[in-house]
Every structure is written in structure tokens, then in C-alpha cells.
Design a binder for these strands. Structure first.
Lengths: 211, 211
DNA sequence: GTGTACATGTAATCCGTTACATGATTCC
DNA sequence: GGAATCATGTAACGGATTACATGTACAC
């Protein structure tokens, strides 16, 4: 039976995964960068609203982008103490990225994988105190993330080129704040279900509503 | 050179991926279910705080869980119009799931992949009107999701066994509401950057703050 | 009788991670 | 001199998706 791979025919170019565009996006801002720098940058900002690829994948994407002609690289010579490979976006790359950015490709619903809520969802299998502790941990981690977002926001220069990244970071800041509120509301729900030791259960009218 | 796979030695059992636990979790609630039903249920509730695996993967996970002795299946016979395979959790499965639920395994930070914010982040490459339209679409989609969460919440019976799933859904409801607020705030930020046609730009003192 | 939902699977393939390997530079 | 960071990769592998295949039941 003929498989889907027909070697004699030209394969239509498969669309690039969002990760490739994200990496190319990192390159679209002023300056040349190494894969290593890109990873640090992704860790410090991209990950708050998208996600930070593994370093090995960043290198792989950079190689792919170069193969496609969307990026060029040059090995730094003796002018720098360390030999490294710096990448820059090409005109073709900028055009392709702009076309993607202006398309509706890959603009799906946000994907959320929230391990904590998964645990709560299975809360009937765990000790109430354990659940509470997990939420507390999550609160602490979220507060730490909020500080990191604010640090990134403080670093973001107040120039026109960085206006959109700042909006994304601003969104992330509000998102972390919302995450804190959500966790606190969940904690209250858990307390209502199984009041913590020493607490006096109060009467209530079902769910607490925002009114 | 010897690879990491040494056939002569017993491999320590690799830990199951979160997806396996999620599927086992679906089985941990009262009732026997088919893979098909599990998929529908995941689409209707799990996906709002975790994610809904592809149907083919659900079947694969069910087979794995059965291999591990965490689930049993039986083919329905002539008593049902359609032959299907119904799965149920075993005692071993319940014990393993409870151990996982009570552990701190896989309780990492929430993973968020927000394609819309990625687009905004690259907003310098797109037309302002396009960005606005994307946010509007997102608002509409989020409102639809909110309705779905509320429908799931309405379906969730008011019994003790379902208390924790209800908390997770309640969290999801608040999350969708927060998502709406976040999108509206982002829209305002975009307007400030490039006022829509016909709008009169007003003076402002930087970012709008929650106070 | 035709389309939709029900129901279960296989195959191919890619995405992405972790582990491993290697070496230079900088800081203490 | 030793640790941490900088810097770039390769290899193996699992996770997950999409496309494909197949057939039943039911509603209109």
C-alpha cells in the first residue's frame, strides 16, 4: 500500500511549530544573540505567557531557521574571549515572521496545565492538610514569579520597540495577581469543605460570590 | 559503548506521566466508563484546568493502566446494543493513585501557553487593528468557555464525592472571569499605544493600576 | 439512505525533554 | 585549584497528535 510519504513528489513544506516562531520572535528584536542568551531571555520573560523551550531545542530551532534562510549566524572570532555563534534574523525571516504574526495560524485557545488544580480535583484521595499545604506552596511560588515578572518589567526599556513586550509582561503581571486570588479563593473553598483544626465553621449561603 | 539501556539489568519502573494519573483519576469517580466517555468528560471538565488528551491517547493510557493492574476492563455483551469496553479502577489502582495524589510528584508550576499573548508580544510586526481583532476573538471564545464551565458546574451533582471536582470547576469559572478581565486590560493597553480610529486620546499617568 | 454520533483502534511522525559530552572562562 | 557559569551540541526516548481504518446505531 502506498504510504503518505511519496518520495517522488515534492512535499509541501510543513508549517513551522509555534516554538520556531517564538524563537524567531526573540531574534526579531534589535541585536544579535547566541542560543544561550535566547534561553536566558526566554526564562526571564517568554515563559510567563508562553513557555521556555529547553536549551537543546533552542539550538535545534536556530539551526532549522538558518536552513530556511530565516536567520544567519556567524562565529565570533578572536575579538571576543569566547567563541560563540551569534544569530540574527534575515529579511526573509522578518517577512515570514510578519506574515505569521498577521495570520490567524496557531492562534488557538490558551493551553493551561495546572498540576495543582489536578490534585485538588482528586482531593477526595488526599488528606485535607496536604491539599492546603500544596495551595500554600503554590501561593509562595506565584508570589516569587510575580516578583520576577516585575523585575522583567523594570528591565524592559521604555522605548517604542519594546512597547508590545511590555504589554505582554504587564498582562503577565496581572495574571500572576489573578493566580494569587484564585488560589486564595480555592483555599477558602477547601476550608469550607473541611475546616482546619481550631477553626469555627461559619454558616454560609453556598459559594462565595463576587457579587 | 554501552547505552543507557542495559538489557541484563532490571529497569526500574519509570514513573507514569501525569496524563496516566489524570485518566486513572477520571476512573476513580463512581461508575464504569468507556474510553469514548472519558474523552467526552475530559473535554467537558478536565480541559478547563488541565487538558484533554487525544482520544487515541486515552485508549493507549487505558491499555497501559490495565497492564499495570490499575484498571480492569470488560467487553459488554449482548445486554447492550453496542459492544464496548468499559473500564473500572482496581484496588491497586486506587492505592497507587492515592499515593500519587498524596505525593509531591508532578506538582510543578502551572504551564501556560497563550498564543494570543505571544502574538501581542510580537505586536510590532502586525497591524494594530489585527491585534485588536485577535483580542476580541479571544474575549468571545473565553465567554463561550465560561458558559461551558458553568454548564459543567450545573451538571456536577451536589454530593460529597463530587465536592473536589466542584472546587476545581469553581476555580475554572473564576479563572475564565479573570481571563476576560486580563484581555480587556490588554485591549486598553493596545488602545493607548495606537488609539483606534475615531477615538480621542486621553491623558493618563502610565499604567492603569488596581490601586 | 444519508449523515452524525458512537466506539475502538493502528501507524507515522514530530515535538520536546533529559541525559550525556565537552570545553572555555571567570570568580573565589 | 575548584566551582559556577558560559556555551554548544548529540543521542535516546517518550509523549502526544494527526491521519487513517473500520464498523455500528440512530435520527431525520
Amino acid at each position: 500500500m502506498p504510504s503518505r510519504q511519496i518520495p517522488s513528489e515534492q512535499e509541501p513544506p510543513r508549517p513551522l511549530p509555534p516554538t520556531a516562531w517564538a524563537v524567531l520572535g526573540l531574534l526579531s528584536f534589535p541585536g544579535e544573540r547566541t542560543g544561550y542568551e535566547l534561553k536566558k531571555w526566554a526564562d526571564a520573560s517568554l515563559r510567563f505567557f508562553y513557555w521556555s523551550p529547553a536549551i537543546s531545542q533552542i539550538y535545534a530551532e536556530l539551526r532549522r531557521l538558518e536552513t530556511l534562510g530565516y536567520a544567519t549566524s556567524r562565529r565570533s572570532g578572536p575579538e571576543e574571549p569566547r567563541t560563540k555563534r551569534r544569530y540574527a534574523i534575515t529579511e526573509a525571516g522578518r517577512a515570514a515572521l510578519a506574515a505569521w504574526a498577521d495570520s490567524t495560524q496557531d492562534v488557538g485557545p490558551p493551553v493551561l496545565k495546572h498540576p495543582l488544580v489536578l490534585r485538588i480535583w482528586l482531593g477526595h484521595l488526599a488528606a485535607p492538610e496536604r491539599l492546603r499545604a500544596l495551595v500554600e506552596e503554590h501561593l509562595a511560588r506565584t508570589e516569587a514569579e510575580l516578583r520576577q515578572v516585575r523585575a522583567a518589567l523594570a528591565r524592559a526599556e521604555d522605548h517604542a520597540e519594546w512597547a508590545h513586550p511590555r504589554i505582554a509582561l504587564r498582562w503577565s503581571e496581572l495574571r500572576e495577581l489573578a493566580e494569587l486570588e484564585l488560589a486564595r479563593a480555592m483555599l477558602a473553598d477547601l476550608d469550607r469543605l473541611a475546616p482546619p483544626r481550631g477553626a469555627i465553621p461559619v454558616s454560609h449561603d453556598g459559594w462565595p460570590g463576587p457579587g
